[in-house]
Write a protein that binds this DNA or RNA. Structure first.
Lengths: 345, 345
DNA sequence: AGTTAGCACTCGTGGTAAAAGAGTGCTAAC
DNA sequence: GTTAGCACTCTTTTACCACGAGTGCTAACT
């Protein structure tokens, strides 16, 4: 275990380095208020800390830099709960007070606010729709042979899909069909729609409609592949270009390529337990292109159930304490909005 | 006017520089097949072309580089219609054959394909919804006091909005309201919804519903501020990082900041006439951060009417001929899909 | 035994100088 | 009007040196 003094020094090095982005030497460290030992003593401790793997030295005549292990120790044991920054709190509050009606826009805005507050890149995964329950289904014909299927969930999410009507289907057929669908499918979670369709609805269908096969096919299309499913938004990608560790275009490119693959970006966010904040440092992240980065992430909830995730990506040299704080706050605020929006008005 | 020979040389310089990204000298140029003059002759011509403003010289002992004016002349007079690249055509065709039902996803995909084909950054402005005509309006209550208003246009676009129901409104009130709305508003373009509401619907409303004021307010919310209105998508932003002129992070940052402001990005795309391709080179673009860039853009159409725009952004050193070609093709393909999707199935 | 001062050593940084290389402009010959 | 030749210019590369920051080690101190 690290001695009290070693922890103090490690703490000071991390805090200093996060601020300055310069390797910190024994001299500068000895001038810190909380450090009363001489530079020489610090040097000895630093040599030990390096040997233990908590510090790195870019080259012999440079100061020390926290290693990945060093950051990890800092996050796990040293990092203080940052006081709630009121200007931050305001900024988040304002965002959510100004009622945003479309979930999609809300989520997008969250990404932007998060990136502005942290000066890093933010990722927001849109609320999972799979467990949302069906409130109503509509089918609206728009031109001969074509229609739009609309599905509204209990929380007010709307999903739509252009569909091809089976041959010879008329207005009354559709009305009947929609009645049947609503009768059987209201209250069913989207994830179970497909199986329900085949199990319950299909049997009744054969007696109702002539074009049995085609209609079933059509029904499948209605429910499947929800478009908004875990849609991801990236905010403030350009912030990463302001970081001194990413002055090199070749370093940055893989990151931006990652950001463009929004369909799979969820995997870079840490998996967290209910209400906690997760931190992935360097190669703890399964994504190789993030081995020089740290990712801090949290979930957000609707009625107490986790429905989506938010996160911040930056260089390993980032202000963990502050960002954890911001994510905590943002997660809570977002959860409140999502929970309230489907409650008693 | 430029002599035949000067044009030939300018043409060769542009083509060569676009390929190599290196200033091209008289020696290398004299080895071109189509150039039969000696290096010395070329040098004389190049000096003239520079004096006329068509070429730049990074420094005295470097080769020449096309100036903005040089590119402009190339685009206007020299550029050859590139042959249709079959692999390109295939790639676009595949995208649109695989029927994409949601317009939003279609547009997003277009941005991606465009950026992949051009190896540049693509911008796609989602179809303008303002002139779309209302096909049907629905209001679906989701919890006491809350509802979702859904508006479907004739081409199958769906817009939704969470709304707060006026105090004491019951199911039958809503049904009546929706009937009235559909009766009066079907066929009206979205852009005119608001005024129609006040002019026609409002008067009848007072006799129908008690809570006149609130309901009107509510109705306004239904139609206004269409969320998908000219939504913009940026594809392949990371491609720009591969360009040698953007090796410097400070050069790139303004661009990425621009890309993040999707709400105003439309202004960087050239304004074009029906069916043509527009090119903005360097400071021809109103956007200052694009003065080292060129933007090539086109419109796309639905039933012959321009509904959106697509464009490609890159350094001024770009393969204009090829990209113009690709945009032409993509615009036509996208227009076809959009036109067909609301036609006779 | 732990701590501190002193000092030689290492290594990246920044600046200058010289050499190399690429391409030009000009002159004179064709 | 065109071309070959050559001196000239200017960037790029390499080498070198001095500088400074920071260390590691040793020896003295508490």
């Amino acid at each position: 275990m690290l001695s009290q003094r070693q922890q103090k020094i490690l703490y000071a090095i991390v805090e200093d380095y996060v601020r300055s982005a310069e390797p910190v030497g024994s001299r500068t460290l000895s001038k810190h208020q909380e450090i009363q030992f001489s530079a020489a003593t610090i040097r000895n401790e630093m040599a030990d800390l390096e040997e233990l793997g908590y510090l790195d030295q870019p080259h012999t005549s440079a100061g020390r830099v926290p290693s990945q292990k060093g950051y990890r120790f800092y996050v796990d044991h040293l990092m203080a709960q940052a006081p709630v920054d009121t200007s931050m709190a305001d900024s988040v509050r304002v965002l959510f007070e100004h009622k945003i009606t479309e979930v999609e826009r809300l989520v997008q805005q969250t990404a932007q606010v998060l990136s502005n507050l942290t000066h890093q890149t933010a990722i927001v995964l849109g609320p999972r729709t799979a467990e949302e329950k069906v409130r109503q289904i509509e089918v609206i014909p728009i031109a001969s042979g074509r229609a739009v299927a609309i599905l509204v969930t209990e929380t007010g999410l709307v999903q739509d899909r252009a569909i091809q009507l089976p041959e010879g289907v008329q207005g009354e057929d559709i009305a009947q069909l929609v009645r049947l669908l609503n009768d059987r499918l209201v209250g069913v979670p989207i994830s179970k729609l497909r199986s329900r369709l085949h199990l319950e609805v299909a049997s009744e269908l054969s007696s109702l409609v002539e074009t049995y096969e085609e209609t079933l096919q059509f029904l499948s299309e209605v429910g499947v592949a929800s478009p908004a499913q875990h849609r991801a938004y990236v905010g403030g990608a350009s912030n990463i270009l302001a970081q001194p560790e990413f002055r090199d275009v070749d370093k940055v490119r893989p990151l931006f390529e990652l950001f463009e693959h929004t369909e799979s970006i969820g995997r870079v966010l840490p998996i967290v337990h209910q209400g906690t904040i997760g931190v992935l440092i360097g190669d703890e992240n399964p994504e190789l292109s993030l081995h020089d980065c740290a990712v801090i992430g949290a979930e957000y909830y609707s009625h107490g159930e986790a429905v989506g995730r938010i996160g911040v990506i930056g260089p390993t040299r980032m202000d963990y304490a502050r960002i954890v704080n911001i994510l905590n706050y943002a997660s809570a605020a977002l959860s409140k909005v999502l929970t309230d929006r489907s409650d008693i008005g």
